[in-house]
Design a protein around this nucleic acid. Structure first.
Length: 513
RNA sequence: GAGCCGGUAGCUCAGCUGGUAGAGCAACGGACUUUUAAUCCGUAGGUCCUGGGUUCGAUCCCCAGCCGGCUCACCA
Protein backbone atom coordinates (compact mmCIF):
# COMPACT_ATOMS: atom_id res chain seq x y z
CA UNK A 1 0.00 0.00 0.00
CA UNK A 2 1.50 3.25 -1.07
CA UNK A 3 1.19 6.73 0.31
CA UNK A 4 -0.83 8.00 -2.66
CA UNK A 5 -3.30 5.21 -2.12
CA UNK A 6 -4.11 6.33 1.37
CA UNK A 7 -6.83 8.80 0.45
CA UNK A 8 -9.15 6.97 2.83
CA UNK A 9 -6.58 7.01 5.60
CA UNK A 10 -5.87 10.67 5.03
CA UNK A 11 -9.54 11.58 5.32
CA UNK A 12 -9.71 9.91 8.70
CA UNK A 13 -6.63 11.70 9.96
CA UNK A 14 -8.17 14.98 8.88
CA UNK A 15 -11.28 14.12 10.85
CA UNK A 16 -9.10 13.32 13.84
CA UNK A 17 -7.56 16.79 13.65
CA UNK A 18 -10.99 18.37 13.21
CA UNK A 19 -12.26 16.58 16.31
CA UNK A 20 -9.38 17.97 18.37
CA UNK A 21 -10.05 21.44 16.98
CA UNK A 22 -13.62 21.19 18.18
CA UNK A 23 -12.38 20.23 21.61
CA UNK A 24 -13.26 16.55 21.39
CA UNK A 25 -10.67 14.15 22.79
CA UNK A 26 -10.52 11.22 20.36
CA UNK A 27 -8.89 8.84 22.83
CA UNK A 28 -10.39 9.33 26.29
CA UNK A 29 -9.53 7.02 29.17
CA UNK A 30 -12.75 5.31 30.17
CA UNK A 31 -16.49 5.24 29.81
CA UNK A 32 -19.00 4.40 32.49
CA UNK A 33 -21.26 1.90 30.82
CA UNK A 34 -24.51 0.83 32.44
CA UNK A 35 -25.55 -2.06 30.19
CA UNK A 36 -24.19 -4.37 27.57
CA UNK A 37 -26.29 -4.34 24.39
CA UNK A 38 -27.79 -7.76 25.07
CA UNK A 39 -28.79 -6.56 28.54
CA UNK A 40 -30.53 -3.56 26.98
CA UNK A 41 -32.53 -5.80 24.66
CA UNK A 42 -33.50 -8.16 27.46
CA UNK A 43 -34.30 -5.38 29.92
CA UNK A 44 -36.46 -3.44 27.47
CA UNK A 45 -38.41 -6.50 26.40
CA UNK A 46 -39.06 -7.24 30.10
CA UNK A 47 -40.16 -3.66 30.75
CA UNK A 48 -42.59 -3.82 27.82
CA UNK A 49 -44.03 -7.09 29.02
CA UNK A 50 -44.37 -5.73 32.54
CA UNK A 51 -46.00 -2.52 31.30
CA UNK A 52 -43.47 -0.36 33.09
CA UNK A 53 -42.72 2.07 30.24
CA UNK A 54 -43.48 5.80 30.46
CA UNK A 55 -46.24 7.51 28.44
CA UNK A 56 -44.03 7.96 25.39
CA UNK A 57 -43.22 4.25 25.47
CA UNK A 58 -39.64 4.87 26.56
CA UNK A 59 -37.74 2.53 28.84
CA UNK A 60 -34.89 3.33 31.21
CA UNK A 61 -32.02 5.58 30.28
CA UNK A 62 -28.93 3.51 29.57
CA UNK A 63 -25.28 4.12 28.79
CA UNK A 64 -24.03 1.77 26.08
CA UNK A 65 -20.71 1.61 24.27
CA UNK A 66 -19.43 -0.14 21.18
CA UNK A 67 -17.93 -0.01 17.74
CA UNK A 68 -19.97 1.67 15.00
CA UNK A 69 -20.85 -1.02 12.45
CA UNK A 70 -23.51 0.73 10.39
CA UNK A 71 -24.65 4.29 9.79
CA UNK A 72 -27.62 5.88 8.03
CA UNK A 73 -27.74 9.63 8.07
CA UNK A 74 -30.95 11.50 7.24
CA UNK A 75 -30.10 15.15 7.47
CA UNK A 76 -31.49 16.19 10.83
CA UNK A 77 -31.45 12.65 12.22
CA UNK A 78 -29.33 9.55 11.90
CA UNK A 79 -29.46 5.84 12.69
CA UNK A 80 -26.56 3.55 13.34
CA UNK A 81 -25.65 0.33 15.05
CA UNK A 82 -22.92 -0.30 17.54
CA UNK A 83 -21.55 -3.69 18.46
CA UNK A 84 -20.12 -4.71 21.80
CA UNK A 85 -19.27 -8.01 23.50
CA UNK A 86 -22.95 -8.81 23.89
CA UNK A 87 -24.13 -8.08 20.35
CA UNK A 88 -25.57 -5.06 18.56
CA UNK A 89 -28.01 -2.30 19.21
CA UNK A 90 -29.44 0.47 17.09
CA UNK A 91 -28.86 4.10 18.01
CA UNK A 92 -31.03 7.04 16.99
CA UNK A 93 -29.64 10.56 16.87
CA UNK A 94 -31.81 13.69 16.47
CA UNK A 95 -30.77 17.27 15.96
CA UNK A 96 -33.31 18.57 18.47
CA UNK A 97 -32.18 16.13 21.15
CA UNK A 98 -28.45 16.70 20.74
CA UNK A 99 -28.26 20.37 19.82
CA UNK A 100 -26.47 21.97 16.84
CA UNK A 101 -22.88 21.35 17.87
CA UNK A 102 -23.11 17.79 19.09
CA UNK A 103 -25.23 16.80 16.10
CA UNK A 104 -22.82 18.41 13.66
CA UNK A 105 -19.88 16.61 15.26
CA UNK A 106 -21.47 13.32 14.23
CA UNK A 107 -20.20 13.92 10.71
CA UNK A 108 -16.68 13.35 12.00
CA UNK A 109 -17.53 9.77 12.98
CA UNK A 110 -16.80 6.76 10.80
CA UNK A 111 -17.60 3.08 10.72
CA UNK A 112 -15.17 1.44 13.10
CA UNK A 113 -15.10 4.26 15.66
CA UNK A 114 -15.91 3.39 19.27
CA UNK A 115 -18.55 5.56 20.91
CA UNK A 116 -20.55 5.68 24.08
CA UNK A 117 -24.16 6.83 24.06
CA UNK A 118 -26.55 7.79 26.81
CA UNK A 119 -30.29 7.86 26.35
CA UNK A 120 -33.66 6.18 26.82
CA UNK A 121 -34.53 2.89 25.17
CA UNK A 122 -37.53 2.74 22.87
CA UNK A 123 -38.93 0.71 20.03
CA UNK A 124 -38.96 2.29 16.56
CA UNK A 125 -41.90 2.26 14.20
CA UNK A 126 -40.35 -0.73 12.46
CA UNK A 127 -40.06 -2.55 15.77
CA UNK A 128 -36.36 -2.38 16.56
CA UNK A 129 -35.20 -1.78 20.12
CA UNK A 130 -33.14 1.41 19.93
CA UNK A 131 -31.29 3.84 22.18
CA UNK A 132 -32.33 7.45 21.52
CA UNK A 133 -29.12 9.40 22.07
CA UNK A 134 -29.39 12.22 24.58
CA UNK A 135 -25.62 12.57 24.35
CA UNK A 136 -22.71 10.72 22.83
CA UNK A 137 -19.00 10.44 23.51
CA UNK A 138 -16.22 9.43 21.18
CA UNK A 139 -14.24 6.61 22.84
CA UNK A 140 -11.71 5.87 20.12
CA UNK A 141 -11.24 7.20 16.61
CA UNK A 142 -10.57 4.58 13.94
CA UNK A 143 -7.96 5.67 11.42
CA UNK A 144 -8.22 2.68 9.13
CA UNK A 145 -11.45 1.46 7.55
CA UNK A 146 -12.55 -1.98 8.68
CA UNK A 147 -13.91 -4.13 5.87
CA UNK A 148 -17.40 -4.03 7.30
CA UNK A 149 -19.94 -5.54 4.91
CA UNK A 150 -23.53 -4.44 4.66
CA UNK A 151 -26.10 -6.89 5.78
CA UNK A 152 -29.81 -7.47 5.92
CA UNK A 153 -32.01 -10.00 7.61
CA UNK A 154 -33.99 -12.09 5.19
CA UNK A 155 -37.60 -11.54 6.31
CA UNK A 156 -38.60 -15.06 5.28
CA UNK A 157 -35.79 -17.14 6.74
CA UNK A 158 -34.55 -14.76 9.41
CA UNK A 159 -31.03 -15.41 8.16
CA UNK A 160 -28.47 -12.67 8.06
CA UNK A 161 -27.24 -11.97 4.55
CA UNK A 162 -23.92 -10.16 4.37
CA UNK A 163 -22.90 -8.18 1.33
CA UNK A 164 -19.34 -7.42 0.24
CA UNK A 165 -18.14 -9.59 3.07
CA UNK A 166 -14.49 -9.55 4.07
CA UNK A 167 -13.46 -12.87 2.57
CA UNK A 168 -9.84 -12.94 1.44
CA UNK A 169 -8.31 -15.74 3.56
CA UNK A 170 -4.87 -14.24 3.31
CA UNK A 171 -5.94 -11.04 5.00
CA UNK A 172 -8.26 -12.81 7.42
CA UNK A 173 -5.42 -14.90 8.87
CA UNK A 174 -2.83 -12.16 8.78
CA UNK A 175 -5.06 -9.49 10.25
CA UNK A 176 -7.02 -11.67 12.61
CA UNK A 177 -8.03 -8.60 14.61
CA UNK A 178 -9.91 -7.31 11.56
CA UNK A 179 -11.41 -10.72 10.88
CA UNK A 180 -12.65 -10.95 14.46
CA UNK A 181 -13.86 -7.35 14.43
CA UNK A 182 -16.18 -7.92 11.48
CA UNK A 183 -17.13 -11.59 11.88
CA UNK A 184 -19.16 -12.49 14.95
CA UNK A 185 -18.90 -16.15 13.93
CA UNK A 186 -15.11 -15.95 14.16
CA UNK A 187 -15.48 -14.69 17.72
CA UNK A 188 -17.87 -17.54 18.41
CA UNK A 189 -15.18 -19.98 17.26
CA UNK A 190 -12.87 -18.57 19.91
CA UNK A 191 -15.50 -19.16 22.56
CA UNK A 192 -16.02 -22.72 21.36
CA UNK A 193 -12.31 -23.34 21.58
CA UNK A 194 -12.22 -22.08 25.14
CA UNK A 195 -15.29 -24.13 25.99
CA UNK A 196 -13.64 -27.24 24.55
CA UNK A 197 -10.52 -26.76 26.64
CA UNK A 198 -12.59 -26.03 29.74
CA UNK A 199 -14.51 -29.24 29.14
CA UNK A 200 -11.26 -31.19 28.89
CA UNK A 201 -10.00 -29.68 32.12
CA UNK A 202 -13.31 -30.21 33.86
CA UNK A 203 -13.36 -33.87 32.89
CA UNK A 204 -9.79 -34.57 33.99
CA UNK A 205 -9.96 -32.49 37.16
CA UNK A 206 -13.09 -34.33 38.24
CA UNK A 207 -11.19 -37.58 37.86
CA UNK A 208 -8.34 -36.42 40.08
CA UNK A 209 -5.82 -35.73 37.35
CA UNK A 210 -3.26 -33.12 38.33
CA UNK A 211 -2.52 -30.45 35.76
CA UNK A 212 1.22 -29.85 35.40
CA UNK A 213 3.64 -27.95 33.20
CA UNK A 214 6.73 -29.54 31.69
CA UNK A 215 9.56 -27.98 29.70
CA UNK A 216 9.08 -26.68 26.19
CA UNK A 217 12.82 -26.14 25.82
CA UNK A 218 14.36 -29.58 25.94
CA UNK A 219 17.93 -30.88 25.57
CA UNK A 220 16.58 -34.00 23.81
CA UNK A 221 13.22 -34.05 22.09
CA UNK A 222 11.08 -37.15 22.04
CA UNK A 223 7.71 -38.75 22.56
CA UNK A 224 6.73 -38.65 18.89
CA UNK A 225 8.15 -39.13 15.43
CA UNK A 226 8.73 -35.67 14.07
CA UNK A 227 11.39 -33.17 13.18
CA UNK A 228 11.94 -30.55 15.88
CA UNK A 229 12.68 -26.83 15.91
CA UNK A 230 16.19 -26.18 17.15
CA UNK A 231 17.27 -23.21 19.21
CA UNK A 232 20.26 -22.18 21.24
CA UNK A 233 20.79 -21.11 24.82
CA UNK A 234 23.61 -18.59 25.09
CA UNK A 235 24.47 -18.82 28.79
CA UNK A 236 24.46 -22.62 28.80
CA UNK A 237 26.18 -22.63 25.42
CA UNK A 238 24.02 -25.49 24.30
CA UNK A 239 21.49 -26.53 21.70
CA UNK A 240 17.92 -26.90 22.87
CA UNK A 241 14.86 -28.21 21.05
CA UNK A 242 11.26 -27.09 21.21
CA UNK A 243 9.28 -30.05 22.39
CA UNK A 244 7.45 -32.25 19.90
CA UNK A 245 5.47 -33.98 22.68
CA UNK A 246 5.00 -33.86 26.47
CA UNK A 247 5.12 -37.61 26.88
CA UNK A 248 8.56 -38.34 28.31
CA UNK A 249 8.34 -35.67 31.00
CA UNK A 250 4.86 -36.63 32.09
CA UNK A 251 5.94 -40.23 32.55
CA UNK A 252 8.90 -39.03 34.64
CA UNK A 253 6.23 -37.56 36.92
CA UNK A 254 4.51 -40.93 37.17
CA UNK A 255 7.89 -42.31 38.26
CA UNK A 256 7.98 -39.47 40.78
CA UNK A 257 4.84 -40.76 42.44
CA UNK A 258 1.96 -38.84 40.86
CA UNK A 259 -0.73 -41.27 39.81
CA UNK A 260 -2.64 -39.07 37.39
CA UNK A 261 -1.20 -36.11 35.53
CA UNK A 262 -2.09 -34.10 32.47
CA UNK A 263 -0.80 -31.18 30.48
CA UNK A 264 -2.44 -28.98 27.87
CA UNK A 265 0.10 -27.02 25.92
CA UNK A 266 1.84 -26.24 22.68
CA UNK A 267 3.95 -28.74 20.81
CA UNK A 268 6.15 -27.74 17.88
CA UNK A 269 6.94 -29.77 14.81
CA UNK A 270 9.13 -28.55 12.02
CA UNK A 271 6.99 -29.85 9.20
CA UNK A 272 4.71 -28.71 6.44
CA UNK A 273 1.60 -26.61 6.88
CA UNK A 274 -1.76 -27.67 5.55
CA UNK A 275 -5.42 -27.90 6.48
CA UNK A 276 -4.76 -30.12 9.47
CA UNK A 277 -1.22 -29.15 10.46
CA UNK A 278 0.18 -26.00 12.03
CA UNK A 279 3.83 -25.94 13.17
CA UNK A 280 2.74 -25.08 16.69
CA UNK A 281 -0.37 -26.80 17.91
CA UNK A 282 -2.10 -27.61 21.16
CA UNK A 283 -1.87 -31.05 22.63
CA UNK A 284 -3.48 -32.67 25.61
CA UNK A 285 -1.65 -35.59 27.17
CA UNK A 286 -2.75 -37.49 30.25
CA UNK A 287 -1.32 -40.45 32.10
CA UNK A 288 -3.00 -42.73 34.58
CA UNK A 289 -1.10 -45.19 36.80
CA UNK A 290 -2.31 -48.79 37.09
CA UNK A 291 -4.28 -48.50 33.85
CA UNK A 292 -3.73 -50.23 30.52
CA UNK A 293 -4.92 -49.24 27.08
CA UNK A 294 -8.28 -50.93 27.56
CA UNK A 295 -8.91 -48.67 30.53
CA UNK A 296 -7.80 -45.68 28.49
CA UNK A 297 -10.29 -46.50 25.74
CA UNK A 298 -13.03 -46.20 28.34
CA UNK A 299 -11.63 -42.90 29.53
CA UNK A 300 -11.28 -41.49 26.02
CA UNK A 301 -14.81 -42.51 25.14
CA UNK A 302 -16.20 -40.81 28.24
CA UNK A 303 -14.03 -37.75 27.63
CA UNK A 304 -15.20 -37.38 24.03
CA UNK A 305 -18.83 -37.64 25.05
CA UNK A 306 -18.29 -35.07 27.77
CA UNK A 307 -16.62 -32.60 25.40
CA UNK A 308 -19.24 -32.98 22.67
CA UNK A 309 -22.03 -32.51 25.20
CA UNK A 310 -20.39 -29.48 26.85
CA UNK A 311 -19.67 -27.73 23.55
CA UNK A 312 -22.62 -28.62 21.33
CA UNK A 313 -25.17 -29.64 23.93
CA UNK A 314 -25.81 -32.88 22.04
CA UNK A 315 -24.39 -36.38 21.67
CA UNK A 316 -23.95 -36.08 17.93
CA UNK A 317 -22.57 -33.44 15.62
CA UNK A 318 -22.27 -32.68 11.95
CA UNK A 319 -18.78 -32.39 10.54
CA UNK A 320 -18.39 -31.34 6.89
CA UNK A 321 -21.67 -32.99 6.05
CA UNK A 322 -21.09 -36.17 8.07
CA UNK A 323 -23.40 -36.94 10.95
CA UNK A 324 -21.12 -38.19 13.71
CA UNK A 325 -22.53 -40.03 16.66
CA UNK A 326 -20.85 -40.25 20.07
CA UNK A 327 -23.58 -41.81 22.18
CA UNK A 328 -23.01 -45.47 21.39
CA UNK A 329 -19.83 -47.44 22.11
CA UNK A 330 -17.03 -46.61 19.70
CA UNK A 331 -16.20 -49.21 17.10
CA UNK A 332 -12.93 -51.09 17.61
CA UNK A 333 -10.87 -52.56 14.79
CA UNK A 334 -7.42 -54.06 14.81
CA UNK A 335 -4.81 -52.31 12.70
CA UNK A 336 -3.59 -55.38 10.86
CA UNK A 337 -7.02 -56.90 10.37
CA UNK A 338 -8.38 -53.71 8.86
CA UNK A 339 -5.44 -53.53 6.52
CA UNK A 340 -5.46 -57.26 5.72
CA UNK A 341 -9.08 -56.96 4.69
CA UNK A 342 -8.23 -54.18 2.27
CA UNK A 343 -5.27 -56.06 0.81
CA UNK A 344 -7.02 -59.39 0.70
CA UNK A 345 -4.30 -61.24 2.60
CA UNK A 346 -2.69 -61.36 6.03
CA UNK A 347 -0.33 -58.40 6.24
CA UNK A 348 1.53 -59.89 9.19
CA UNK A 349 2.75 -62.64 6.84
CA UNK A 350 3.66 -60.36 3.96
CA UNK A 351 7.24 -59.74 2.92
CA UNK A 352 8.50 -56.19 2.72
CA UNK A 353 8.63 -56.51 -1.07
CA UNK A 354 4.98 -57.53 -1.20
CA UNK A 355 3.99 -54.56 0.93
CA UNK A 356 6.04 -52.31 -1.28
CA UNK A 357 4.23 -53.70 -4.32
CA UNK A 358 0.86 -53.07 -2.69
CA UNK A 359 1.83 -49.51 -1.92
CA UNK A 360 2.90 -48.99 -5.51
CA UNK A 361 -0.35 -50.52 -6.77
CA UNK A 362 -2.57 -48.44 -4.53
CA UNK A 363 -0.81 -45.10 -4.39
CA UNK A 364 1.80 -45.21 -7.14
CA UNK A 365 4.40 -44.50 -4.49
CA UNK A 366 7.85 -45.98 -4.11
CA UNK A 367 9.31 -46.21 -0.62
CA UNK A 368 12.96 -47.17 -0.34
CA UNK A 369 13.87 -46.60 3.28
CA UNK A 370 11.96 -46.89 6.53
CA UNK A 371 11.23 -50.61 6.46
CA UNK A 372 8.11 -52.56 7.26
CA UNK A 373 6.55 -50.24 9.80
CA UNK A 374 6.62 -47.27 7.50
CA UNK A 375 5.07 -49.30 4.67
CA UNK A 376 2.27 -50.58 6.87
CA UNK A 377 1.63 -47.13 8.14
CA UNK A 378 1.45 -45.62 4.68
CA UNK A 379 -0.84 -48.36 3.44
CA UNK A 380 -3.12 -47.87 6.40
CA UNK A 381 -3.19 -44.13 5.81
CA UNK A 382 -3.98 -44.61 2.16
CA UNK A 383 -6.56 -47.38 2.39
CA UNK A 384 -8.28 -47.30 5.75
CA UNK A 385 -8.10 -43.94 7.53
CA UNK A 386 -10.37 -41.91 5.29
CA UNK A 387 -13.18 -44.41 5.79
CA UNK A 388 -13.15 -44.05 9.57
CA UNK A 389 -15.85 -41.43 9.86
CA UNK A 390 -17.66 -42.56 13.00
CA UNK A 391 -15.50 -42.67 16.16
CA UNK A 392 -13.32 -45.74 15.80
CA UNK A 393 -10.50 -47.14 17.91
CA UNK A 394 -7.80 -48.68 15.76
CA UNK A 395 -5.82 -51.05 18.00
CA UNK A 396 -2.67 -53.14 18.20
CA UNK A 397 -0.14 -51.37 16.02
CA UNK A 398 3.03 -53.09 14.82
CA UNK A 399 5.90 -52.70 17.23
CA UNK A 400 8.06 -50.90 14.64
CA UNK A 401 5.61 -48.00 14.72
CA UNK A 402 5.40 -47.69 18.47
CA UNK A 403 8.71 -47.42 20.33
CA UNK A 404 7.08 -46.25 23.57
CA UNK A 405 4.27 -48.79 23.85
CA UNK A 406 4.18 -52.12 25.66
CA UNK A 407 4.09 -55.31 23.66
CA UNK A 408 0.68 -56.80 23.09
CA UNK A 409 -0.03 -59.60 25.50
CA UNK A 410 0.44 -62.90 23.59
CA UNK A 411 1.34 -61.14 20.32
CA UNK A 412 4.88 -59.80 20.62
CA UNK A 413 5.00 -58.31 17.10
CA UNK A 414 2.27 -55.88 18.13
CA UNK A 415 1.86 -53.25 20.81
CA UNK A 416 -0.97 -52.30 23.09
CA UNK A 417 -1.71 -49.09 21.34
CA UNK A 418 -4.81 -47.45 19.94
CA UNK A 419 -5.61 -44.41 17.92
CA UNK A 420 -9.01 -42.80 17.83
CA UNK A 421 -10.17 -41.80 14.37
CA UNK A 422 -13.07 -39.46 13.75
CA UNK A 423 -14.09 -37.97 10.41
CA UNK A 424 -11.13 -39.63 8.71
CA UNK A 425 -8.37 -38.24 10.84
CA UNK A 426 -6.46 -39.15 13.92
CA UNK A 427 -7.72 -37.46 17.04
CA UNK A 428 -6.08 -39.45 19.84
CA UNK A 429 -3.15 -41.77 20.28
CA UNK A 430 -2.69 -43.94 23.34
CA UNK A 431 -0.98 -46.96 24.75
CA UNK A 432 -0.15 -49.17 27.63
CA UNK A 433 3.05 -47.32 28.36
CA UNK A 434 6.28 -49.24 28.08
CA UNK A 435 7.81 -49.32 31.58
CA UNK A 436 10.40 -52.07 31.09
CA UNK A 437 13.66 -50.08 30.99
CA UNK A 438 15.59 -52.80 29.20
CA UNK A 439 12.98 -53.24 26.50
CA UNK A 440 12.80 -49.45 26.21
CA UNK A 441 16.54 -49.26 25.66
CA UNK A 442 16.31 -51.90 22.95
CA UNK A 443 13.50 -49.98 21.24
CA UNK A 444 15.48 -46.75 21.35
CA UNK A 445 18.44 -48.55 19.84
CA UNK A 446 16.38 -49.87 16.98
CA UNK A 447 15.10 -46.33 16.41
CA UNK A 448 18.69 -45.15 16.37
CA UNK A 449 19.41 -47.65 13.60
CA UNK A 450 16.48 -46.19 11.62
CA UNK A 451 17.96 -42.76 12.14
CA UNK A 452 21.31 -43.93 10.81
CA UNK A 453 19.48 -45.35 7.81
CA UNK A 454 18.17 -41.87 7.10
CA UNK A 455 14.84 -41.69 8.90
CA UNK A 456 14.76 -38.08 10.06
CA UNK A 457 11.84 -38.69 12.37
CA UNK A 458 13.23 -41.67 14.25
CA UNK A 459 13.16 -41.32 18.02
CA UNK A 460 16.48 -40.30 19.63
CA UNK A 461 17.85 -42.13 22.68
CA UNK A 462 17.03 -40.33 25.92
CA UNK A 463 19.37 -41.63 28.64
CA UNK A 464 17.77 -39.60 31.39
CA UNK A 465 14.38 -41.04 30.52
CA UNK A 466 15.84 -44.54 30.67
CA UNK A 467 17.29 -43.75 34.09
CA UNK A 468 13.85 -42.70 35.27
CA UNK A 469 12.36 -45.95 33.96
CA UNK A 470 15.05 -47.89 35.81
CA UNK A 471 13.86 -46.41 39.11
CA UNK A 472 10.51 -47.99 38.29
CA UNK A 473 7.29 -46.74 36.72
CA UNK A 474 4.03 -48.47 37.62
CA UNK A 475 1.89 -49.85 34.84
CA UNK A 476 0.45 -46.75 33.17
CA UNK A 477 -1.97 -45.85 30.44
CA UNK A 478 -1.30 -42.69 28.46
CA UNK A 479 -3.26 -40.68 25.91
CA UNK A 480 -2.52 -37.74 23.61
CA UNK A 481 -5.29 -35.73 22.00
CA UNK A 482 -4.88 -33.07 19.32
CA UNK A 483 -6.85 -30.19 20.77
CA UNK A 484 -6.98 -28.12 17.59
CA UNK A 485 -8.49 -31.01 15.68
CA UNK A 486 -10.99 -31.56 18.45
CA UNK A 487 -12.00 -27.90 18.14
CA UNK A 488 -12.26 -28.28 14.36
CA UNK A 489 -14.63 -31.15 14.94
CA UNK A 490 -16.97 -29.34 17.32
CA UNK A 491 -16.93 -26.12 15.26
CA UNK A 492 -17.28 -27.89 11.90
CA UNK A 493 -14.13 -26.14 10.64
CA UNK A 494 -12.38 -27.51 7.58
CA UNK A 495 -9.01 -25.88 8.30
CA UNK A 496 -6.86 -25.84 11.40
CA UNK A 497 -6.16 -22.19 10.61
CA UNK A 498 -9.75 -21.39 11.39
CA UNK A 499 -9.43 -22.62 14.97
CA UNK A 500 -5.99 -21.14 15.73
CA UNK A 501 -6.19 -17.42 16.42
CA UNK A 502 -2.84 -16.56 14.90
CA UNK A 503 -1.78 -19.39 12.59
CA UNK A 504 1.80 -19.62 11.41
CA UNK A 505 2.32 -17.62 8.20
CA UNK A 506 5.23 -16.52 6.14
CA UNK A 507 6.28 -13.13 7.52
CA UNK A 508 4.99 -10.14 5.59
CA UNK A 509 7.56 -8.27 3.57
CA UNK A 510 8.12 -4.62 4.33
CA UNK A 511 5.88 -2.62 6.58
CA UNK A 512 2.20 -3.24 6.92
CA UNK A 513 0.20 -1.17 4.46
C1' G B 1 6.99 -30.78 -3.10
C1' A B 2 3.34 -31.61 -7.69
C1' G B 3 -1.15 -30.42 -10.49
C1' C B 4 -5.27 -27.11 -11.19
C1' C B 5 -7.46 -22.24 -10.19
C1' G B 6 -6.73 -17.31 -8.71
C1' G B 7 -4.19 -12.10 -7.31
C1' U B 8 -7.80 -5.56 -10.89
C1' A B 9 -10.30 0.74 -6.14
C1' G B 10 -10.70 0.22 1.26
C1' C B 11 -14.31 -4.49 0.54
C1' U B 12 -16.81 -7.89 -3.10
C1' C B 13 -16.15 -8.52 -8.11
C1' A B 14 -16.62 -7.50 -13.91
C1' G B 15 -13.24 -6.44 -17.93
C1' C B 16 -14.87 -9.40 -25.49
C1' U B 17 -10.15 -11.71 -30.59
C1' G B 18 -4.07 -7.19 -27.14
C1' G B 19 -5.69 -0.38 -27.97
C1' U B 20 -2.90 1.84 -20.48
C1' A B 21 -9.95 0.01 -16.70
C1' G B 22 -15.57 -0.49 -14.73
C1' A B 23 -19.88 -1.70 -11.13
C1' G B 24 -22.00 -2.21 -6.16
C1' C B 25 -20.78 -1.09 -1.28
C1' A B 26 -17.31 2.09 1.62
C1' A B 27 -15.24 7.47 1.09
C1' C B 28 -16.11 12.82 -0.15
C1' G B 29 -19.94 17.11 -1.42
C1' G B 30 -25.35 18.08 -1.52
C1' A B 31 -30.97 16.84 -0.22
C1' C B 32 -33.66 14.28 3.57
C1' U B 33 -35.99 14.42 11.78
C1' U B 34 -38.44 6.59 12.72
C1' U B 35 -34.20 4.44 8.98
C1' U B 36 -32.27 -0.49 8.65
C1' A B 37 -28.28 -3.47 2.05
C1' A B 38 -32.10 3.71 3.70
C1' U B 39 -33.04 6.61 -0.82
C1' C B 40 -31.84 10.48 -4.49
C1' C B 41 -28.09 13.92 -7.17
C1' G B 42 -22.91 14.74 -7.80
C1' U B 43 -17.34 13.89 -6.99
C1' A B 44 -12.90 11.60 -6.18
C1' G B 45 -10.29 7.12 -5.78
C1' G B 46 -6.01 2.24 -9.46
C1' U B 47 2.22 0.20 -9.23
C1' C B 48 -4.43 -4.11 -12.96
C1' C B 49 0.92 -9.05 -7.44
C1' U B 50 6.44 -8.38 -8.96
C1' G B 51 10.36 -8.68 -12.68
C1' G B 52 11.64 -9.80 -17.56
C1' G B 53 10.10 -10.87 -22.80
C1' U B 54 7.01 -10.52 -27.46
C1' U B 55 4.53 -6.24 -29.75
C1' C B 56 3.81 0.22 -32.59
C1' G B 57 1.08 -0.84 -28.05
C1' A B 58 0.23 -5.75 -22.57
C1' U B 59 -4.59 -6.06 -17.03
C1' C B 60 -4.95 -9.43 -21.39
C1' C B 61 0.03 -13.35 -24.79
C1' C B 62 5.02 -15.88 -23.15
C1' C B 63 8.85 -16.85 -19.18
C1' A B 64 10.44 -16.51 -14.11
C1' G B 65 9.22 -15.33 -9.21
C1' C B 66 6.01 -13.99 -4.88
C1' C B 67 1.30 -14.71 -2.39
C1' G B 68 -3.35 -17.42 -1.71
C1' G B 69 -7.26 -21.41 -2.51
C1' C B 70 -8.42 -26.51 -3.86
C1' U B 71 -6.60 -31.55 -4.78
C1' C B 72 -2.64 -34.89 -4.01
C1' A B 73 1.99 -35.96 -1.49
C1' C B 74 4.43 -35.17 3.29
C1' C B 75 2.71 -35.44 8.52
C1' A B 76 2.36 -42.46 13.56
Amino acid sequence: MTQELSQLLRTRREKLAALRERGIEPYPYAFSRSHRTDEVHAGFTRAEAGGSLDESGDGDTVRVAGRIVSWRSHGKSAFGHIEDGGGRIQLYFRLDALGEDSFKDLELLDLGDWIGVKGPVFRTRTGEVTVRAGSWTLLSKSLRPLPIGKEEVDPDTGERVVYSAFADPRTRYRQRYADLAVHPEAREMVRMRTRTISALRGFLDSRDFLEVETPILQPIYGGAAARPFTTYHNALDTTLYLRIADELYLKRLIVGGFERVYEIGKDFRNEGIDRSHNPEFTMLEFYQAFADYYDMMEVVEALMRHVVRETTGATALTYQGHEIEFASAFRRIRFQEALSEKLDGDVSQMEVDTLRAHLRAHTGEEIEEGGRGRLLDKLFGALVESELIQPTFVTDYPVELSPLAKLKRGEPTLTERFELFVAGWELANAFSELNDPLDQRARFESQARLAEAGDEEAHPIDEDYLRAMEYGMPPTGGVGIGVDRLVMLVTDSSSIRDVILFPTLRPEEGRAG
